[in-house]
């Protein structure tokens, strides 16, 4: 078991013929990910990387029974691409695109609210279930099939955590990069909840950063419903107030969204908080007695 994606997913790539889309789709296929097609409006009927290209997502759903999509469409068209996928009946939408206008995401969030769909991202590294499906831009080789679920707002910091978990002798069930934007499709709490409910996940690593209240919300949920150990880290303990640190969502506004405040709430909710990012893997091994 795992969450979101696995070897039975039927994955399409929106923007498969673009530079980014093409490169990463190639890497995904090489990893063994079940990619069944791609979508580029106007290029339907062609074949690219050995899979059929469709004009619309609806066609891809009809022809190859796609149920999952990964989006590499440029920012001005990405919100539209998400809504198209949802309208076509895709159940899992993973949006990699960085730089989507906030008001476009306000519309998207409202559009998908009552639909049976899960959006991950945007501005995220994607989702990987090691050994089964890599639906993102992460380096596949650092992952190992295993029982630790990882949730993170960042790309390379997630790889760091994955690498530490692997080096500590454990592997990952599913790693979910929820992204660094102010309006994420999947929140930290959503991702933690999914992993908590996954029978094959034994422990969860939750990596957050300054800005917003997602980690505090997740921590409160864990306190009420948690059944597995959670190790947490918050990046940005040294970030100054009022400056955006790379991610649009990483900005300290009030007293509640500093790293200190978040770490305190997490610790109070029973999460094993590490101060140093170098101790994530070690702490997980220690907590699980490995």
């Amino acid at each position: 078991m795992s969450v979101l994606v696995n070897k039975n997913s039927k994955i399409i790539v929106q923007g498969i013929t673009g530079k980014e889309g093409s490169f990463h789709a190639g890497q995904m296929i090489e990893y063994g990910t079940p990619v069944v097609g791609g979508v580029t409006p106007g290029k339907g009927g062609q074949e690219h990387l050995g899979v059929p290209v469709f004009n619309t997502v609806a066609q891809a759903v009809k022809e190859v029974a796609a149920d999952t999509t990964i989006i590499f469409v440029p920012p001005p068209f990405a919100a539209d691409a998400i809504m198209e996928a949802s309208d076509a009946g895709i159940k899992i939408i993973i949006c990699i695109t960085e730089g989507i206008p906030v008001q476009d995401m306000v519309k998207v969030k409202s559009y998908i609210k009552d639909r049976d769909v899960r959006l991950v991202g945007p501005n995220c590294p994607g989702v990987i279930t090691p050994g089964e499906a890599k639906v993102g831009i992460m380096p596949g080789f650092i992952h190992n099939p295993g029982k630790i679920g990882i949730v993170s707002r960042s790309g390379t910091l997630t790889y760091e955590a994955v690498d530490q978990v692997t080096k500590a002798g454990m592997g990952q069930s599913t790693c979910i990069g929820i992204g660094g934007d102010p309006i994420p499709g999947t929140t930290t709490k959503d991702a933690v909840e999914m992993l908590m409910n996954d029978p094959d996940t034994e422990g969860i690593v939750m990596i957050g950063e300054i800005g917003g209240s997602m980690e505090a919300d997740a921590a409160k949920w864990v306190k009420e419903h948690g059944t597995k150990p959670v190790v947490g880290f918050i990046a940005g303990q040294t970030a100054p107030k009022g400056r955006t640190m790379g991610h649009a969502g990483a900005i300290v506004g009030g007293a509640e969204d500093t790293a200190e405040a978040k770490m305190k709430i997490m610790a109070e909710c029973g999460i094993h908080v590490v101060e140093s990012p170098a101790e994530i893997g070690k702490k997980m091994a220690e907590v699980l007695g490995k």
Partner: peptide
């Protein structure tokens, strides 16, 4: 000098734990 915003912030944090303090954020 770091690749990625999250890792950059984490690197700044680890400097502090090492007794230094970050002169910059750079992704």
């Amino acid at each position: 000098m770091v690749n990625g915003a999250g890792l950059a912030m984490a690197t700044m944090d680890i400097m502090k734990l090492s007794g230094g303090s970050p002169a910059n954020f750079l992704d």
